[in-house]
């Protein structure tokens, strides 16, 4: 299909040209509208799941933040946490400054971390905040496990002579292919046998296993474009294999490792089926709470939670996209 309509196009060609674009527009609408529409609905002042007449008339009273207030609860010390985090970040930045680098990122990162930790510190039995805290405790540990094991294995797999490469690859990718309900059933049976069912450790191990295929796929994809003569050059200049790995290979594949990690994180953070079976009430995560909420009594607070998750996915998507471009630039491809 040409991108522009030639001046001599017949009526039929014109109709098809615009008609096709309208069809595609409708499909894009189908893809994106359900996600967008929950955002205004989450500001509904009533307990309804549709637009009230007041909302349609853009009446300010018909909108409110009450579902967000319900989501965040009232306990916690977010502002204290924020202040502590900002202070800590500023200290780190000052340290960096003396070491000769003007980097203000620590202030931002520690500020956000302080806000979250302050909010979630020591919460018990809150409807939404406790599950959120559980999610934020499980996902990073699972991500760390899958990234460290996965990166090592991906480097091993990208070597030129690997025996049984196909079989190993098939096993390592299988957690992504096997239906979640089957993984969940198997893990439930097996983890009950070895006493991991209903423990924090059990959920972490299960989520790490589910995240590994994503790390393997992204890191091997980055390693495909890796120029091996760089490591040989490093060795030639006297670097030992460990130095070569950390100074040469790691910085180059880091974008792939980070996006693999983000995939693993989102896998764990969004995962419901396995955690329902492997976890117990003490490990209830945010998606689990949403699932329960949707199945039993659906409350508009779910829409507030959903909106927050959409915001998080937009941030993650942006980061992954930026990393992909950086990786392609580092490997000398023109970013597309």
């Amino acid at each position: 299909m040409d991108t522009k309509l030639p001046p001599y196009a017949t009526f039929g060609q014109r109709a098809w040209f615009y008609g096709f674009r309208v069809i595609c527009g409708l499909i894009f609408f189908f893809l994106i509208a359900p996600i967008i529409i929950i955002i205004p609905l989450s500001f509904n002042a009533e307990d309804f799941f549709t637009f009230t007449p007041g909302m349609l008339a853009l009446d300010a009273d018909a909108y409110s933040l009450r579902h967000y207030t319900a989501f965040f609860g009232e306990d916690g010390y977010p502002w204290t946490g924020l202040l502590v985090g900002l202070g800590f970040g500023a200290a780190v930045s000052a340290l960096f400054y003396f070491l000769g680098s003007k980097n203000l990122f620590p202030i931002l990162i520690f500020g956000i971390l302080g806000l979250i930790v302050g909010k979630l510190w020591g919460l018990e039995g809150e409807e939404w905040m406790t599950p959120l805290r559980n999610s934020l405790r499980i996902a990073p540990v699972a991500t760390l496990l899958s990234v460290s094991f996965g990166t090592l294995a991906a480097i091993g797999l990208s070597q030129s002579h690997v025996p049984f490469k196909g079989a190993i690859m098939a096993i390592l990718i299988s957690p992504m292919i096997v239906p979640l309900i089957i993984s969940a059933a198997g893990m439930y049976f097996f983890y009950s046998r070895i006493g991991l069912q209903g423990t924090f450790m059990g959920v972490v191990l299960a989520h790490a296993a589910l995240g590994i295929p994503f790390v393997i796929i992204t890191v091997t994809a980055t390693l495909v474009g890796f120029d091996r003569s760089l490591t040989r050059a490093a060795a030639n200049l006297g670097a030992n294999p460990v130095t070569t790995f950390f100074r040469i290979q790691m910085p180059l594949i880091l974008p792939g490792v980070i996006s693999g990690g983000l995939f693993a994180f989102i896998t764990s953070f969004d995962e419901v089926v396995v955690v329902i079976f492997v976890g117990s009430a003490g490990q209830q995560t945010l998606p689990w709470q949403m699932f329960t909420g949707l199945r039993e009594q659906i409350s508009p607070v779910i829409l507030a939670a959903a909106t927050i998750l959409v915001a998080i996915s937009i941030v993650l998507l942006t980061v992954v996209e930026l990393l992909r471009r950086r990786s392609e630039r580092l490997r000398g491809m023109s970013p597309s």
Binding site: I35, I38, P287, L294, L309
Partner: peptide
């Protein structure tokens, strides 16, 4: 998140 889309 899958649950966001399902709840939508």
């Amino acid at each position: 998140s899958l649950l966001v889309r399902t709840s939508a």
